[in-house]
Write a protein that binds this DNA or RNA. Sequence first.
DNA 1: GCATAATGGTTGAGAATGTAACCATCAACG
DNA 2: CGTTGATGGTTACATTCTCAACCATTATGC
Lengths: 163, 163
Amino acid sequence: MFLKGYLPYRLNYLAEMTSEATRAIYRRRHGLTRPEWRVLVNLAEAESLTATELCARVPMHKTKVSRALSALEARGWVTRAGDAQDRRVAHARLTARGRQAFERVRPEMEAATAAMLAPLSAEERRQVDAGLAVLERLFDVPGAVGGAADAAGENQVPPQRSD
Amino acid sequence: MFLKGYLPYRLNYLAEMTSEATRAIYRRRHGLTRPEWRVLVNLAEAESLTATELCARVPMHKTKVSRALSALEARGWVTRAGDAQDRRVAHARLTARGRQAFERVRPEMEAATAAMLAPLSAEERRQVDAGLAVLERLFDVPGAVGGAADAAGENQVPPQRSD
DNA sequence: GCATAATGGTTGAGAATGTAACCATCAACG
DNA sequence: CGTTGATGGTTACATTCTCAACCATTATGC
C-alpha cells in the first residue's frame, strides 16, 4: 500500500484530526479564522511583530497574514504603528481588548488539547514528542530543541501552505 | 510559550513542511489538485471504489471527492459504472491511461519523500514512526497497526477538513 | 544622484473549499 | 403499497485561499 505509509499523508491526516476539535472553538465559539487565531497567538507571545515576522512565525503566506491583521484591527484587537526608521514596515500589537480576548480563548484551547491527549500514557506522550522533534530538527524549525537555526541567527524560508 | 508546544500546531507545521516538495510534483508538474491526487492513489490501490468508500479512505468530504472524480473523469483517467443492485451508487475505476498517469507520478513522489528523509538515521525513522503510530492509534486510524477499527468492522466517521 | 533591483505590505481575479440544500433511490414500517 | 426517513451523490452559493501583480519605500551599483 502506497499512501498509508507515506509521511506527508500521515502528517496531514493527524493534523486534520487534532485540529478538528480546536477549530470549533476558535471558529464557531469565537468567530476567528485559523489565520486570525494564529496571528492572535503569536502577537500574544511577543510585544509587537511586523507582518514579515508574523509570516515567519505563524507560518503562513503574507496575504493571509495581511488579511488576518486587517480583520483583527477591524475588531479592535490589534493596532499597527509605522516604523520610524523604515516607513515600509508596521509593527502590530495587541490592544488590551485583544489580549483579553486571547485570554478567554486560550484556556478553552488548552483544555480541548489536554482532553484529546488524556488517554495517552506518559511513555506514549514521550514517544509522540520524540517523533515530532526528529522531524522538527530535520526541517530546522526555529523553536525546536537541538535545531541548528537557534544558534546560527539565519533561519529557513517559511513554508507557504499545505496541500 | 503557548503555541510551540501545542500539538495541532506542530502537526500542521510539519504537515506543511513535508507537503511542500511533493505538492509541487502533482500540482505543477502534473496539474492535479490534492483531492484529485489522493483519489487517484486510492483508485490505484483498489479495483474499483464508490464515492462513499473513497470518502472513508481519502479521507475527505464527499463534495471534494465528487469534484475530484468529475475532474479525473473529464481527463479520461477514471470511468464510473452504475451498480446493478443499488442504482444510487457508482463504481469508479482507473482507465488504462489513468493507471499509466499514476505510474508516472508515483516514482516522483516516492523519490521526493525519500530525498526529504534521507538525512535521518534508522533510529530516527523508527522514532518518527513510533510517535505517529501512537497518535494514529489514539484516533483509531483505519490502517494503523494496533488500531481497534481493524478487527472490529466498524470504522470511525472520517474527518472533513483541516482549518 | 539616478537607474535598477530588492523588500514590506496590500489588493484583485480566479480557483478551491465549506456548508447546506437538493435530487434520486432505497429501506422501514404502517 | 404509500408514506416517512435514510443514503449515495451532485449542485449552488458564500467564504477562503492562491497566485500574480501592484504600490511605496529602501538598498545597491554606477
